[in-house]
Design a binder for these strands. Structure first.
Length: 267
DNA sequence: AAAGTCTGCAACCGCCAAACT
DNA sequence: GAGTTTGGCGGTTGCAGACTT
């Protein structure tokens, strides 16, 4: 799969799809010499590519550390949470998903957002729903690059996860109750007592057309895609994330001793 | 079976910041 | 300190395969 047919760019540099031969040359060179100065690599390796292109090819495709295959539900949930917290800082988000590249995450996000915005357009009744606010904020987050948070470190992100794992899921169920009741839905998630991480369990009944699925007893591999999609959809639809503030989110700030900075999309 | 449409994703582009001269 | 180079990032594009009609 490639972006465009290979062609020669300026100065005889090749662009477009990488061939298996080029891949082999690049991998061999990096295995032997490491990836130091990308601009010198094509010259030394004998590739007619720019350094940038080599770097990208290695980083997004050839690097053996890259995890391939579809994202799990947990991965997607994590991305959702991180995006809500960090905005479109894909490289930062990628550091929390070992083996996943920022490009993969970006692609996943873009396809999800695209899907969602089309759904919203198709269904005018979503106008009054909290979902609309969520999506418009996500989309605006895409359009307006969030300013870098000065001095933010991965430790700050970890702090966020501590908060998330300890408090948010609980708050998720309690805070959302009024909304789900108002929409005749049952709260779709409850927290498993034994779970230390952010395990969410779909309730066994609901009035919104969900199926009876116990997410806790269901590994990502044994769950059907529909189930995963359904659960993710509910997260996406949650008014908790970025809604227009009928919901008190101050517990986040209190819990984090002021470390939690105001999020890109309204946490 | 063919044509049209959709989706996933590899790769390019432009911008920015850090490092180097 | 100014100019240049390099690496990194996020946004976007468009091809190819999957799916639908």
């Amino acid at each position: 799969m490639g972006r465009r047919a290979a062609y020669r760019g300026e100065q005889g540099l090749k662009k477009g799809q990488w061939t298996p031969e080029e891949d082999k040359i690049l991998v061999k060179h990096i295995e032997k010499h490491g990836c130091g100065r990308w601009n010198t690599i094509p010259k030394h390796a004998g590739l007619r590519r720019c350094g940038k292109s080599c770097r990208l090819r290695w980083k997004n495709y050839l690097n053996p550390d890259i995890k391939r295959g579809p994202f799990t539900f947990e991965d997607e949930k994590l991305i959702l949470q991180l995006q809500a917290r960090l905005g479109n800082r894909w490289s930062t988000i990628a550091t929390h998903l070992p083996g996943r590249t920022d490009n993969d995450i970006k692609n996943l996000w873009n396809s999800r957002v695209k899907k969602r915005s089309l759904l919203d357009l198709d269904d005018p009744t979503t106008e009054a729903s909290p979902t609309t606010g969520v999506m418009s904020q996500w989309e605006s987050a895409t359009l307006e690059p969030e300013p870098r948070l000065p001095g933010e470190t991965s430790a700050d992100c970890d702090n966020f996860f501590d908060i998330w794992n300890s408090e948010i899921v609980e708050s998720f169920t309690t805070t959302l109750a009024p909304w789900y009741e108002s929409t005749s839905c049952q709260i779709p998630f409850s927290r498993t007592p034994s779970s230390s991480s952010s395990a969410l369990v779909k309730s066994s009944t609901d009035s919104c057309g969900s199926k009876d699925v116990d997410m806790a007893s269901c590994s990502s591999s044994s769950c059907t895609k529909d189930d995963d999609d359904f659960a993710l959809q509910l997260l996406l639809d949650s008014p908790l994330i970025g809604g227009d503030d009928d919901i008190d989110m101050t517990f986040l700030e209190e819990k984090s001793d002021g470390k939690t900075q105001s999020p890109a999309v309204g946490f």
